[in-house]
Design a protein around this nucleic acid. Structure first.
Lengths: 205, 205
DNA sequence: CGCTAGCCTGGCACTCAGTGCCACCGGCCG
DNA sequence: CGGCCGGTGGCACTGAGTGCCAGGCTAGCG
């Protein structure tokens, strides 16, 4: 979710160029959604605010909701790469959790953006619904990895279960992080994963 | 998800009455979606097929997607009741899983309907996305129960985590049940819950 | 019986997301 | 120069969802 820092900033008129194309639209969309709410902003307004036409907006993003996700495909790709190079000696669940933690270890500079993104996604009903489709990509990657490690089918119960459970834990950690700005995201992720991987020890007794 | 059997069947012309109002629309919608796909069917067609106007269709269901969910509110209410009367002596996680299993113990006669329903919900992207909003109601109920049992806030990490994880396991069990018609839903649910509650023993080693 | 109040329904018109089609404009190549 | 091409905008269309209003049907009441 770092998003397109690769391009040389400001080829336009030196000052006041900002990121071009897609990234600028993302920023405009996020700002508008954050201040007025996702449903209250039309795609026309986002396009206008980004200085493009509505038609072009829908060429950048297949859906209004997709404008808040940044480079999520890259995020998933990074997760997949981390899983690919995971130590086969450690338990699969450990590998998956570690990969989740590492792929979500953002530099401080990106935290405000991430926070706003996730707040919207987990708060706005339309975005929460849409998130299921995006997170399903993650699930597929995780399930595939678990399947290869355990020698089963990616559609089997165990791979799917691990994918769904770890994703649930990660999402919960995000919610906790949003609610409580104090501790870093990584801590919440560890808490959630450890709790789940150990069979919820806090609930015994 | 039994759906409106309470009314006396056939006050209309004795024969060929069928369920009236909402239930008939649900049936028409499910049939159309099942044969031609959710996105390929317009709300106009569903309304026509059910013998009502489009406008009335949207009075029965706030959304086209809601037409496949049957009496889901009742389903959630039953789950809540089960949790309310759960034995406080047993671990919370056990109570939650048991309630999930029991509320999903359908009589054989309803299985075909349930199967079609769930197949659509978990298969059609638009319905999968929408499901997040419906399942969130379940999560709230579960989280509330865990919170009261553990003496915490329903928005705390643990209640949320239990809700999200058990829901993930249940959904996975449903997927497995759909893929493999052989064993009953209850077995898949037990498998998934046991695996998760025990910290995924199948993955160790 | 007639009248009225209230509910269910349908029709109409409107907003807005998303899409296909085409026309335009920029650069780039031969 | 002329033709090709990728990115863009405009336009029109479908389809979901909604507000508003106009019946019709039923229930209560004089």
């Amino acid at each position: 979710m770092d998003g397109h820092n690769a391009r040389v900033a400001g080829t336009r008129t030196a000052a006041e160029a900002g990121p071009d194309g897609r990234a600028r639209v993302e920023r405009a969309a996020l700002d508008l959604f954050a201040t007025r709410g996702f449903e209250q902003v039309t795609s026309d307004e986002v396009a206008d605010s980004a200085g493009i036409s509505r038609r072009t907006f829908f060429r950048y993003f297949p859906t209004k909701a997709d404008a808040v996700w940044g480079d999520f495909a890259g995020h998933v790709a990074r997760l997949e790469r981390l899983l690919a190079v995971a130590d086969p000696a450690q338990p699969v669940l450990t590998s998956v959790c570690a990969a989740y933690v590492e792929v979500n270890d953002y530099p401080d500079a990106e935290l405000p953006l991430l926070r706003e993104r996730m707040r919207l996604i987990l708060t706005e009903p339309a975005l929460l619904a849409h998130s299921q489709l995006r997170f399903a990509e993650v699930d597929r990657v995780v399930a595939r990895h678990v399947a290869t490690r355990t020698g089963g089918e990616p559609t089997g119960l165990l791979p799917r279960l691990v994918a769904a459970s770890t994703r649930a834990a990660a999402t919960t950690a995000f919610e906790a992080w949003l609610a409580q700005a104090g501790s870093p995201l990584t801590r919440h992720l560890h808490l959630a994963f450890d709790e789940m991987a150990a069979g919820f020890p806090s609930l015994r007794g």
